[in-house]
Amino acid sequence: MINVIYFAWVRERIGLPRERIETNAATVLDLIDELSAREARYAAAFADRASLRVALDQKLSSFDAPLIDVQEVAFFPPMTGG
């Protein structure tokens, strides 16, 4: 089981802030493909990969990163702090 969290417009498009998912996805990309295949709202949220960022266990990461031992995956748009 893995915790998946969504922020900003990713959260709005999917329609929920977080969920627990049973998955065998090996990498972030595998997880994106798996979620996108589920329902149109996921496919819509993950359609534009260039505008997506991912954090693994609260550290900015890359789409090809492995999910082994990861507890928390977060998807969000590029950050706009400051």
Binding site: F7, A8, A55, L60, A74, F76, P77, P78, M79, T80, G81, G82
Partner: peptide
């Protein structure tokens, strides 16, 4: 400021 802008997880 440069780093907070694009590396701190805030969304406006």
């Amino acid at each position: 400021m440069d780093y907070l802008k694009s590396r701190a997880p805030f969304w406006k």
